[in-house]
Simulated assay, not measured.
Amino acid sequence: MKSQIVTFLIKCPDQKGLVAKFTSFFYEEGFNILSCQQYVNGIADRYYMRIRLDAEDVGISKKDLEDKFSNLAEVLECTWSVHYDSEKQNVAILVSHTSHCLYDLLERQREGAIDCNISLIISNHNKLKPIADMFGVPYYHLPITKETKAEQEAQVIQLLSEHNVDLIVMARYMQILSENFINQYPQRIINIHHSFLPAFQGADPYRRAYERGVKLIGATAHYTTVDLDEGPIIEQDVERITHESTPKTLKQIGADVERLVLAKAVKCHLQHQIIVSDNRAIVFPESGE
């Protein structure tokens, strides 16, 4: 195996000796353990681990590594995944009219703050094409109506396949994806919702927040599931407001929160910091290696 960092994400029933069994396995295969993060959910009796390994001078192939770990995982009743840092992920961004999240992700990717290839941008409007052109990213305008939804989604899926997309980011894409679409990309679609979920689900949350007189507004990044705005929450943040705030100023304040929340969620996914368990996202902090 070439020199690279390997990340294992592991979840299994909690039991004694798990740390020793996992770390001994990797030590015996010649890996240097860079970090080992773990969490035990005592209520569900579940164990979670994120372990980062340096594969320099390790002789085992990827296939042999995965086959051998599968044997251990079967004994311990583990669900697991392995990720290789040398394999940069391809990201597709879906947008509609609003530009702030799109521009922020493109800028962060260009500056190296998020490590991925932004392979394409897909929109049901042509308004944001100049931003894509500025960053040299292919832009596909695929209009959608109620009557053409299935056809448009088929076109989107075809583009995602052609570009070998690993992660789909809904950067204020104001369309509800079909169950068929979502089920093809489990835990691979991240949405930014301009509200602190579970409050103000659905459309126009800033107007409803204003009408309710809230004192905090926020944003939530979550994995998309067939239940609207109810997928596993990856990241959230809030900003304090006053009674003087209007729906317009709430949107302006909220836009800054949305940028930060979405960027952090995307980075956590790309760095393999997330394990989904039922409808909860276990998000490990960024390790310092």
Rank of each mutant, 00 (worst) to 15 (best):
L167F: 09
S86T: 15
D133G: 04
I144C: 09
D57L: 14
L120M: 13
G254F: 00
S178E: 05
K88I: 14
L197T: 04
L72K: 02
F8H: 02
I234E: 01
K88A: 13
G42V: 11
L262F: 06
A150P: 10
Q252P: 09
D256Y: 08
K63P: 02
V82M: 07
H194V: 00
R52I: 06
E289N: 15
P186Q: 03
S35T: 15
S24C: 03
I234A: 10
M1L: 13
P130Q: 11
T23N: 10
K264E: 11
V276M: 09
S61D: 14
Y39S: 09
L167S: 00
Y39Q: 12
H269K: 12
E56G: 10
T225L: 02
M170C: 09
Q155C: 11
Y210N: 08
L159C: 08
R52D: 14
I10K: 04
D64K: 14
I5K: 15
Q271N: 15
I182E: 09
D104I: 01
L142T: 07
L120G: 03
E230W: 07
L53K: 05
I253P: 02
P143H: 15
A92K: 03
D133Y: 07
D104L: 02
V226I: 13
S123K: 06
G202Y: 06
V40C: 13
L228N: 04
L76W: 08
S81H: 11
E28D: 14
I33E: 09
N279L: 08
P13F: 00
L72Y: 01
H243L: 10
N90Y: 04
E153N: 02
P186C: 01
H163E: 11
E77D: 10
T249M: 10
C12G: 01
H194A: 01
K62R: 14
K16R: 15
L250A: 00
N71A: 14
Q236R: 01
A44R: 15
A209R: 00
K267C: 07
H243V: 11
D237R: 02
R108T: 06
I189K: 02
N124H: 05
P13Y: 04
F196N: 04
T220L: 01
E235L: 09
E147I: 08
Q15V: 02
D166M: 07
V214K: 08
D256V: 13
I234R: 07
V238T: 13
S86I: 14
S123A: 13
H243C: 05
N191Y: 00
L216S: 04
A44S: 15
I114G: 01
S24H: 11
C101D: 07
N279I: 06
V156R: 00
F200C: 03
K267V: 10
A44Q: 15
V91L: 06
I274C: 08
K63A: 14
L216T: 04
Y27W: 11
M174F: 13
K21Y: 01
A20G: 12
T242C: 01
E211W: 00
T220Y: 00
S70Q: 13
L216Q: 08
S96L: 11
G59P: 12
A219I: 04
I182W: 01
F8D: 03
F22A: 10
E230N: 11
G59R: 14
F31P: 02
H97Y: 15
